[in-house]
């Protein structure tokens, strides 16, 4: 894979430096079979340094995860070597099975089949709380 030339795929750009590994796992990119490139500390005119993730293959991206982790991110959808769509993910109101409640007293700790749902309770401070026990993410 040439990192700078994707034909059909996704480029997640302007990731705040240091956030790419977190995104990599939250998006489950480790389970993909197509080439995935993760670039850390690339030069950025806006912020000095940024991370970039390039996925060389068509794949349904969970924009909620991106909006949750990093509001600076932009997503470029590449088709036939050209950017056909640019997306700026916003902070999602709810996250399902992205975060997992760590409160040992939460019902999700004993009932394994329950979806782990977090709700945005303070957009300014970017605080999400467990739907069931209200513990902070």
């Amino acid at each position: 894979m040439k990192i700078d030339s994707i034909k059909n795929g996704i480029v997640i750009d302007h990731i705040s430096a240091g956030n790419s590994m977190r995104l990599y796992y939250l998006l489950h990119l480790d389970t993909l079979e197509c080439p995935v490139a993760l670039i850390q500390n690339a030069a950025s005119n806006k912020s000095g340094k940024k991370d970039i993730i390039k996925i060389d293959g068509e794949w349904e991206l969970n924009l909620d995860v991106l909006g949750y982790v990093d509001s600076a991110v932009t997503v470029n959808i590449i088709k036939d070597g050209k950017i056909v769509e640019k997306i700026t993910p916003s902070m999602p109101q709810t996250l399902e099975n992205v975060l997992f409640c760590k409160n040992p007293r939460c019902i999700t700790g004993v009932e394994q089949e329950l979806p782990h749902i977090f709700k945005l309770t303070d957009p300014k401070k970017r605080i999400y709380r467990c739907l069931y026990c209200e513990s902070k993410a």
């Binding site: 007293r105 019902i107 009932e111 069931y132 026990c133 513990s135």
Partner: peptide
């Protein structure tokens, strides 16, 4: 009443 937080919501 339930000892686990969130059980009544479930």
């Amino acid at each position: 009443r339930h000892p686990k937080e969130g059980a009544p919501l479930v």
